[in-house]
């Protein structure tokens, strides 16, 4: 029962983020936007490129979808609303998100097109940049919670959310999260202006709908992860816990979507430099800093 409810909340979250995304990109708030858009996409033909690697072409969008849903499955919306409360929840999020890379490599290779392939390669560059940065801050979070269980992580933030306790880790994780769900300014794989759509260029009709839905769920999942790990999850006065989780996650998602409009796309080489020369030392410092705080403070 709670599983179904959690998944329902995921769906609702995805819908709201889709409305937000539409609002941010067109300036018009349209509550039925996702439904219209989704139906319109489903009504179009789904073309298959001429010489695809059929298996990869077909598997990539569902794999992206599964990866996003699995990552969400270990995140709690409230103390009772969690799909799977694994003992290694915080690590499992990363395991599931690793398949985003696999899916995009398949989507890049499958259609047998230059734009898609270049998009896939660029995502590799992005992966090498963000992969350390998406894991290391979680180490510090787990240190404070003394557990990898996601509910414990939320509980450990009762006094102070991690965003304030370990701000450096927070910023690093948010940047890495935007890279994982390839939101602008880190949208190298699909780069609408440069690569005419990149990895999603060759998908049309219902396959594109699945791809876009997967991408949306990925954004929601990462917003939920940021909420659970850094913003104290469901804690807050007055409103019921699930409302707090939802509100925080939506705010985070909105912020992630809006940032991209104001900044040009980050070049691959630049992003790699920033992540390895600045990001990793910061993440290491964060771990050290949290360790000192935990050992020194009562």
């Amino acid at each position: 029962m709670s599983v179904a409810l959690t998944l329902l909340m995921l769906a609702a979250g995805a819908y709201l983020v889709a409305v937000l995304e539409g609002w941010i990109s067109t300036g018009r708030l349209s509550a039925a936007g996702p439904i219209t858009g989704g139906l319109a996409l489903l009504g179009r033909e789904s073309l298959v490129p001429r010489k695809p690697d059929r298996i990869f072409f077909e598997v990539a969008p569902p794999l992206l979808l599964v990866s996003a849903v699995l990552a969400f499955a270990v995140l709690p919306i409230s103390p009772n609303l969690i799909v799977a409360d694994l003992a290694t929840g915080a690590l499992f999020v990363n395991a599931a998100l690793a398949y985003v890379m696999v899916a995009l490599v398949m989507a890049g290779w499958g259609p047998d097109g230059v734009y898609a392939m270049v998009g896939g390669w660029r995502f590799l560059g992005q992966l090498i940049a963000y992969s350390m940065l998406i894991v290391m801050p979680i180490t510090a979070v787990a240190m404070r919670a003394e557990s990898l269980v996601t509910t414990d992580v939320v509980v450990s933030q009762a006094a102070l959310p991690n965003a304030l306790y370990q701000p450096v880790g927070f910023l690093v994780f948010v940047a890495a999260a935007m890279a994982v769900c390839f939101l602008p300014p880190l949208d190298l794989p699909n780069a609408p202006g440069e690569l005419a759509g990149g990895v999603e260029a060759e998908y049309t009709g219902w396959r594109l709908a699945v791809f876009r839905l997967a991408r949306l769920l990925l954004v929601v999942t990462l917003a939920a992860a940021i909420t659970v790990f850094y913003l104290g999850g469901w804690s807050g006065p007055l409103l019921p816990p699930w409302a707090w989780s939802a509100a925080k996650a939506l705010l985070v998602a909105a912020a992630m979507l809006m940032v991209g409009r104001y900044v040009p796309r980050l070049g691959e080489a630049d992003f790699l430099q920033w992540c390895w020369k600045l990001g990793i030392p910061l993440a290491l410092f964060n771990i050290f800093y949290v360790g000192v705080l935990l050992l020194v403070l009562p």
Binding site: A95, A98, Y99, M101, V102, V105, W109, L124, L127, I128, S131
Partner: peptide, 8 residues
């Protein structure tokens, strides 16, 4: 997942 994707 990460290692093999890079290998691919």
């Amino acid at each position: 997942a990460t290692e093999m994707a890079i290998m691919a």
